[in-house]
């Protein structure tokens, strides 16, 4: 039979080990979950507060990323200019940068003693330790996911349709809006979901730049971490909510955009 080779069975044991390693923490969560008290734990007003704040800030961070990330992706994919590779590397940096470093950077850029702090203060804007700061911190960490996804689609995309639009008298903006954008829409959607998921789980940059004020900057991941010291059961309950949200994200990605 063609295309068939001998199975290297030696790979099987480490593969199973790897799988167990990834699954065991989830099992731990489910096994140790205080199922009976779950209702009362989750009905605590601080939980609802943290969940609302998380969803709100992750949504705003995703919208912010869409507003500037899609144009940025287009520039990186379509414009030819010196230093493009360097720029692309800079855009991808937050993907590999420890989030806490990002948080410190944000603090010294937009914080009260940051580079832009005085100018922002003159305008009456204070970002650190506010919900707006949470949104900025999340967008900083999450936007590269969107940019990289959309840029990949634009770079691999078919330019012939844009050319056809040009011959038909469409302006650059019309071509982008009516041809380019619809053709990469699936990638924008996939990138947005990745971006949202990353923003939802953001911890390091948020706590560094925006702090940990309940109701204002205390998002779910922060609440989980804090609860772990005071009320471990509450921490598990909150973690379960985040886990459920992640599963929803994963399913939506698989069902709609990542199908081969």
């Amino acid at each position: 039979m063609t295309g068939r080779s001998r199975t290297p069975w030696g790979l099987l044991a480490p593969a199973v080990l790897g799988l167990l390693f990834l699954v065991t923490p989830l099992v731990g969560l489910l096994v140790r979950a205080p199922w009976r008290r779950l209702g009362s734990l989750l009905s605590d007003p601080t939980v609802g507060q943290a969940l609302r704040l998380s969803l709100l800030s992750a949504t705003l961070a995703t919208l912010l990323s869409l507003a500037v990330g899609v144009p940025l992706a287009w520039v990186l994919a379509r414009l030819d200019f010196p230093g493009r590779r360097l720029l692309r590397a800079l855009v991808t940096l937050p993907l590999v940068l420890p989030p806490v470093v990002g948080g410190v950077g944000l603090l010294y850029a937009f914080g009260r003693r940051g580079v832009l702090g005085p100018a922002l203060a003159d305008l009456g804007i204070s970002l650190s330790f506010t919900t707006a700061g949470v949104v900025l911190a999340e967008a900083f960490v999450a936007m590269p996911f969107l940019v990289v996804t959309v840029e990949g689609a634009l770079a691999a995309g078919d330019r012939r349709y844009e050319e056809a639009a040009t011959t038909l008298g469409a302006s650059g903006w019309t071509t982008f809006r009516r041809v380019t954008l619809p053709l990469v829409a699936p990638s924008i959607a996939a990138g947005s979901v990745l971006c949202f998921a990353r923003a939802l789980g953001e911890f390091g940059a948020t706590i560094t730049f925006a702090g940990n004020l309940p109701g204002t900057t205390q998002t779910m991941p922060l609440a989980v971490y804090l609860a772990l010291e005071s009320d471990p059961d509450a921490a598990i309950a909150l973690a379960l909510v985040l886990l459920a949200l992640s599963v929803v994200v994963l399913v939506s990605l698989r069902e709609r955009w990542l199908r081969p």
């Binding site: 012939r160 349709y161 050319e163 056809a164 639009a165 011959t167 038909l168 008298g169 469409a170 302006s171 019309t174 009516r178 041809v179 619809p182 053709l183 829409a185």
Partner: peptide, 29 residues
């Protein structure tokens, strides 16, 4: 200036219907 260009590979916009494709140059105007 706007020209009419007919390509060997048609290049109809895949996300638009036949009618929307034909209307495209008019909408661009």
């Amino acid at each position: 200036r706007a020209v009419g260009f007919v390509f060997q590979d048609y290049r109809l916009f895949p996300h638009l219907s036949a009618r929307e494709n034909v209307a495209f140059p008019l909408r661009s105007k």
